[in-house]
Amino acid sequence: MSEDDYRGLLDIRAHAPWRIAEAAAARRRGSPLKERGQLLIIAADHPARGVLGAGNRPFAMGSRVDLLRRLCVALARPGVDGLLATPDIVEDLLLLGALEDKLVIGSMNRGGVHGAAFEFDDRFTAYDTASILRMGLDGGKMLCRIGLDDPATATTLETCARTITELAGHSLVAMVEPFWSRRVNGTVTHDLSAEGVIRSMHVGQGLGATSAHTWLKIPVVVEMERVMRATTLPTLLLGGDPTGAPQETYAAWRDALGLPGVRGLVVGRALLYPSDDDVAAAVDTAAAMLEVTVSERARRHGAEASHLDGSGEENR
């Protein structure tokens, strides 16, 4: 994104806001999720909850200009299928022309501001079903933190369930990100054991009047093979904050991507803010992992088909 692009955004925002709706209507949409193999979606919805840190940089996402530049680089790389973001970021990228032929998932409930006393009150303060339809998006993502010691969770569960039903009524994907959570010394923490993730998945996939269009978005934890046997729903792996060594993170993703039911990655900070700041290289590494996974699955499928055909020949 050039300086001229940035100044052009400022002018449109101030003097021609109707251009956003025009850009949304004119955008070439990507092929639907169900028609794709392994997905790579770039996530950028953390800032709307006041989460601006990445790794050891507490205000990494503080500059919208820098974030948009990184997003434009990431979205332009081969193998990137789309974006998950809040309306403000989606609209900036629409105006920049960065979302052509991409999937776009709208982030919906951003009311649980990080560190707030009301953090478990995950109200739907961003996209709703009507605006996702109006903007021609491909679905909505919702955070579903199940706070065992916070009664606000009941309202979050009810609202998530209603929204899942609404989205399904329009054949739109509801991407549910569940966590089994509690406060520890005043800080919201997630149970990232296999048991904790499995519990959260069972609650998340049971929400709504139908799960026909529900996808899960879960963290990569230990015992992922056991975790994935907790659901039959399409599941995407979230990247999380890049705190460890990149190679360790990539290795964990690579192992989990080969499991049945895993349909790809939804990654934000780990690819947008790598330790060496080489966004293109980080995205290319993730895309290459997905390509290998697709090839390996095709190879296994071919081998299994050949084995079955051979068995059939012998038994005739």
Results as ranks from 00 to 15, higher is better:
residue 155 T to M: 13
residue 194 A to R: 00
residue 245 A to V: 12
residue 22 E to Q: 15
residue 236 L to Q: 10
residue 212 A to P: 03
residue 215 W to R: 11
residue 218 I to Q: 08
residue 116 A to K: 02
residue 225 E to N: 14
residue 131 S to L: 04
residue 124 F to Y: 03
residue 128 D to L: 08
residue 76 A to M: 05
residue 233 L to D: 01
residue 290 L to F: 08
residue 266 V to K: 00
residue 264 G to L: 02
residue 154 A to W: 14
residue 65 V to R: 15
residue 253 W to S: 09
residue 183 R to G: 06
residue 225 E to T: 07
residue 182 R to I: 09
residue 286 A to S: 08
residue 69 R to Y: 10
residue 109 N to Y: 11
residue 76 A to F: 01
residue 303 A to C: 03
residue 259 L to E: 02
residue 217 K to N: 09
residue 258 G to F: 00
residue 51 V to K: 09
residue 61 M to N: 13
residue 43 A to P: 11
residue 185 N to K: 11
residue 156 T to M: 12
residue 311 S to V: 11
residue 81 D to I: 10
residue 83 L to A: 07
residue 149 D to I: 08
residue 289 M to P: 05
residue 39 L to A: 01
residue 182 R to G: 07
residue 45 D to G: 14
residue 280 A to R: 07
residue 129 T to V: 15
residue 72 C to W: 04
residue 282 A to T: 13
residue 184 V to T: 07
residue 216 L to H: 09
residue 18 W to Q: 13
residue 68 L to I: 10
residue 192 L to W: 03
residue 76 A to T: 09
residue 256 A to C: 12
residue 146 I to Q: 13
residue 123 R to M: 10
residue 294 V to D: 13
residue 116 A to Y: 15
residue 235 T to S: 07
residue 5 D to K: 03
residue 66 D to I: 11
residue 37 G to S: 13
residue 36 R to W: 06
residue 99 L to D: 08
residue 12 I to G: 00
residue 226 R to H: 12
residue 297 R to F: 12
residue 188 V to P: 04
residue 202 H to P: 00
residue 257 L to A: 10
residue 235 T to G: 01
residue 166 E to M: 02
residue 278 D to T: 02
residue 299 R to D: 06
residue 21 A to I: 10
residue 16 A to F: 06
residue 251 A to N: 04
residue 81 D to W: 04
residue 244 G to D: 11
residue 266 V to D: 02
residue 261 G to R: 05
residue 315 N to M: 08
residue 239 G to L: 07
residue 283 V to P: 03
residue 300 R to Q: 12
residue 41 I to C: 11
residue 208 G to W: 10
residue 239 G to W: 03
residue 166 E to Q: 15
residue 154 A to V: 15
residue 235 T to Q: 00
